[in-house]
């Protein structure tokens, strides 16, 4: 049981990291990134390939972060004049390009067969359940760092400019803010966090293939951000946990419904997940937590 919870917590952390990145890019800066799964795949593959080539795992993770930062900045740069749905299409196209690359460049990525046997960090230190707990510790550390990074950006003047750009970039640029530079930096900062998520995924799964990086990754990330409250990092954490509870908790329901056959139980589970999300959007459309606002100080005496 502890092993299962450890695994689920690691999954929550990985999906929360992706959500954190999306919260920065979309929640704060208003840049819709539907292609988040493509960046996630790049992070995972770079970390996996580097580790398999004998690069120490920490360096491999850093390489993954560098790769996703550069790609994110590039995508933000070339899509500089795109907003809302057009940006969403452009990012989706990028992710598709990544997926096709992973499928076709078999010499590098193993194509549809993927990459088995990715080395894990500190794998000599512990094994079995102890290793799981160690990996959880690593993931929590990585998440704490990323969370602090995102939170720092959110409450800083930088975050305030991002929110201003999100609301009306014309006003922001009239006030002398360089829209392009802020957008590129926001997207790259999100990319850095996705790079961390990708490397954790590669190290934890030890096997990656293109089917693990589908549009559902984007869907879960948006679910977590929307459920948590767009723009709030704390809310996002609650959102990511809720989404996982919904995904995994429903798995146990069939144990209480022996009259359903396996196919019906599986379909019912997916229906319940959908219903859960709809109920959330009806009764809590603003999410669990509202976004960070700098409170004006009460007037002095």
């Amino acid at each position: 049981m502890i092993g299962y919870f450890t695994a689920i917590l690691i999954f929550v952390i990985i999906s929360a990291l992706i959500g954190l990145a999306l919260n920065l890019q979309w929640g704060q800066a208003g840049m819709v990134n539907f292609g988040i799964f493509g960046f996630f795949a790049v992070g995972a593959y770079v970390a996996g390939l580097a580790a398999m080539a004998g690069v120490p795992t920490l360096i491999a993770a850093l390489l993954a972060v560098v790769a996703t930062v550069i790609l994110s900045a590039l995508v933000a740069l070339v899509s500089a004049r795109l907003r809302e749905d057009y940006l969403a299409i452009a990012t989706l196209a990028f992710a598709e390009a990544v997926r096709l690359f992973l499928l076709n460049e078999t010499w590098l990525t193993g194509g549809a067969n993927g990459l088995p046997g990715i080395p894990r960090p500190l794998s000599k230190v512990a094994s079995g359940l102890n290793y799981e707990l160690l990996f959880l510790g690593l993931s929590i550390t990585a998440f704490a760092l990323c969370f602090a990074f995102a939170q720092l950006l959110t409450v800083s003047p930088f975050g305030r400019v991002l929110r201003a750009l999100r609301e009306d970039d014309l006003v922001a640029s009239t006030l002398g803010k360089t829209t392009l530079s802020f957008r590129v930096r926001a997207f790259a900062a999100g990319g850095a966090i996705i790079g961390v998520a990708g490397s954790l995924h590669a190290f934890y799964f030890t096997y990656i293939d293109p089917t693990q990086f589908g549009a559902f990754v984007t869907a879960y990330a948006f679910m977590a951000v929307i459920a948590g409250g767009r723009g709030s990092n704390i809310g996002l954490l609650i959102g990511a946990v809720s989404v996982m509870v919904l995904l995994e908790g429903t798995r146990f329901l069939k144990d209480f419904m022996p009259f359903l056959d396996a196919g019906q139980a599986a379909s019912l589970r997916l229906i319940l997940i959908g219903v859960g999300l709809i109920l959330l959007l009806i009764y809590r459309p603003q999410g669990f937590v509202s976004e960070y606002r700098l409170q004006a100080k009460q007037g002095r005496e």
Binding site: M1, I2, G3, Y4, A7, I8, F11, L247, E248, R251
Partner: peptide
């Protein structure tokens, strides 16, 4: 995820 549940 399913395997984790079955195994653990």
């Amino acid at each position: 995820r399913a395997a984790r549940k079955l195994l653990d």
